[in-house]
Amino acid sequence: MTVELSFLSQYRHPFLLFDELPDAYTEHPFAPFALTDAFIKEAGETAQPILHFWQTSPLIILGMMDTKLPYLSDALPSFSRHGYPYIVRNSGGLAVVGDKGVLNFSMIFPEEDERLPIDDAYARMHHVIQAAFASFGKSIEAYEIKDSYCPGDFDLSIAGRKIAGISQRRIRGGIAIMIYLSVSGDQHTRAQMVREFYDKGLKGTKTKWNFPAVDPNVMTTLEEAFDTPMTIDDAKRLLLAAFEPVSLQKGELSSTIRGSYSEGFEKMTVRNDKLLP
């Protein structure tokens, strides 16, 4: 299957790739979110497209809406019992799970002339994922998997089971389109943790916010869906192959990026101190 990625050719600068970064910019759970904001600002100010790979140790990444659960304080310890700390991210959506089997990938673009429509931004990531994994001969579709964790209109699935979720964030003329890819590991347990969280956080209470009735059976990993072993490095290699039509350069953490990172880290600290009990 051939997937059209013509949008890649519209940028006049090479894509900067940020992957192996110093520990100071990877070890803290807030780091990737502060970096994302820094990269968005950089893209907006310099017209520079950026690619960013990142992972976390075991971590629950909550959305803002999760903090509205009526019994949040009773629900959060369920993650700790599984050995997963938790934070609240600075972009939309609901809870997702990070660990060594989950790859996060962001495409950051400048919005130079006009705002990129929301659905067009999501479609860009969908098309990149289709292109990257086309050799496996499985259709990767984009529609809501209702009973997955963090469901959305652009959930990516294979044979009706979710493999990935996409989000986006915009700042000062830049946009990040971000995806988590469940590459390997125990997706059933990941989903079960989130289901337990909502069960304990709601206790049957009706709220004006919609929280998913998470069904672990509607989620899977790339490894399981393709019925072949797959590592994080395998997934990175396939993703980068989709960018062969453009020039890639190793990204360097400039003084402006480092400054914006520090600002973003402070905002994440304040956000989490305020929202988590």
Rank of each mutant, 00 (worst) to 15 (best):
Ala191Arg: 02
Lys200Pro: 01
Leu222Thr: 01
Asp186Asn: 15
Ile171Gln: 08
Ala134His: 12
Arg237Ile: 00
Leu156Trp: 02
Leu202Thr: 04
Ser157Val: 03
Ala142Leu: 08
Val183Gln: 11
Lys236Asp: 07
Met178Arg: 14
Pro151Asp: 14
Tyr180Ala: 08
Ala123Glu: 15
Lys138Thr: 03
Leu156Asp: 07
Arg169Ala: 06
Asp199Ser: 12
Lys236Trp: 09
Leu240Phe: 08
Ala241Gly: 00
Ser135Lys: 15
His188Ala: 10
Asn210Phe: 03
Ala159Trp: 09
Glu244Leu: 10
Lys206Pro: 07
His188Asp: 12
Tyr149Glu: 09
Ala164Gln: 07
Met178His: 13
Arg115Thr: 12
Tyr198Lys: 04
Val128Met: 01
Lys206Gln: 14
Phe197Lys: 00
Phe154Glu: 05
Ala164Pro: 00
Leu238Gln: 11
Asp215Val: 02
Tyr198Met: 00
Ser148Tyr: 10
Thr189Arg: 14
Ala164Glu: 11
Glu112Lys: 15
Leu222Met: 12
Asp233Arg: 14
Asp113His: 15
Asp186Glu: 12
Glu224Trp: 01
Ala191Ile: 02
Asp199Thr: 13
Arg170Asn: 00
Ser182Gln: 10
Pro245Val: 04
Glu114Lys: 15
Leu239Glu: 09
Phe133Lys: 11
Val218Lys: 08
Ile129His: 06
Glu144Gly: 09
Val128Ala: 06
Ile129Phe: 00
Leu116Gly: 06
Gln187Phe: 02
Met125Tyr: 08
Pro245Asn: 14
Gly201Ser: 01
Asp227Gln: 12
Gly160Cys: 05
Val214Phe: 02
Lys162Trp: 06
Arg237Glu: 12
Thr205Val: 10
Leu239Asn: 06
Val194Pro: 04
Pro151Thr: 10
Glu224Val: 04
Arg195Ser: 03
Leu116Phe: 03
Gly185Leu: 01
Arg237Ser: 13
Gly160Leu: 09
Tyr122Asn: 07
Ser247Gly: 07
Trp209Ala: 06
Ser157Tyr: 03
Ser139Leu: 14
Ser182Ile: 01
Leu239Pro: 12
Asp120Asn: 15
Pro245Ala: 12
Gly137Tyr: 13
Met178Ile: 08
Ile179Met: 08
Pro216Ser: 04
Thr205Ser: 09
Cys150Arg: 05
Phe154Lys: 08
Met125Asp: 06
Val218Phe: 01
